[in-house]
Amino acid sequence: MTGWRDEVPGIRKNAGQWKAFESKGNCVVLAGPGSGKTRTIVMKVARLVTEAITEPHRIAVLTYSNACVNEIRRRLSNLRLDDESRVLVSTVHGFCLVELIMPFARLAGVSVPEPLVVATEAQRSRHFGEAVAEVLGRRTDYKFRMRCEVARMAVQDRQSPAWTGDDRVERKVVDAFERRMARAGLIDFDGMVLAGVELIDKHEWVVHR
């Protein structure tokens, strides 16, 4: 195994990777497969953990698949940085569920099922189909479902004018879907993210605990 500083010369040779590695604040990395995105991110995490993050704080590395979680953990382990008390590697949904919803949702009054039951894809599809039938009285195609999912994630605050200010049918379907899921005592993966965002956005004590 090597230390992360031993890998720095390789990052320095690539101008884009070095710029991301040296960046301060928010940074978006856009590159194709095999271009070294994961390597650069892991190196940046190693640097932050070593130079900027002090106990009892830790850094969260969030991704969208378990395969990516395992790969990042493997690379951090190779750099001798696999201490979970300092680095949390998780999917976005796992982070929202374990680190936000389970410990804080009830304390903050955020509406989630009790007990917390994650919907299967079959349950999710059934409730969505029933919501469509309730609002439209007919079936729709896959493209309409995608529009509903985009609308659902684009505006987290259901009380805001951005959500209530027009009469778009996608939002009516989403409202009906979320009501049906709540009555069934279910939460889906997008619902986890929405609840997590609500906890962070509206309850400062969750972020600064």
Results as ranks from 00 to 15, higher is better:
126 R>N: 04
126 R>G: 05
127 H>W: 12
128 F>K: 12
129 G>N: 05
129 G>C: 02
129 G>L: 02
130 E>F: 05
130 E>G: 01
131 A>T: 00
131 A>Y: 10
131 A>F: 12
133 A>Y: 10
134 E>W: 07
134 E>P: 00
134 E>H: 07
134 E>Y: 09
136 L>A: 06
136 L>W: 07
137 G>T: 08
137 G>F: 01
137 G>S: 07
137 G>M: 00
138 R>L: 10
138 R>Y: 02
138 R>V: 10
139 R>A: 03
140 T>E: 06
140 T>D: 00
140 T>R: 04
140 T>V: 11
141 D>F: 02
141 D>G: 01
142 Y>A: 09
142 Y>T: 09
142 Y>R: 13
143 K>P: 04
143 K>T: 14
144 F>D: 12
144 F>V: 08
144 F>Q: 12
145 R>H: 07
145 R>Y: 06
146 M>F: 10
147 R>F: 03
147 R>G: 11
147 R>Q: 13
148 C>G: 13
148 C>L: 15
149 E>T: 06
149 E>H: 04
149 E>Q: 04
149 E>W: 03
150 V>W: 13
150 V>G: 03
150 V>P: 06
150 V>Y: 12
151 A>I: 05
151 A>E: 14
151 A>D: 15
152 R>S: 15
153 M>K: 13
154 A>Y: 06
154 A>G: 00
154 A>W: 03
154 A>M: 00
154 A>R: 08
154 A>P: 03
155 V>C: 11
156 Q>F: 14
156 Q>K: 13
158 R>S: 14
158 R>L: 14
159 Q>M: 10
159 Q>Y: 04
159 Q>V: 09
160 S>K: 01
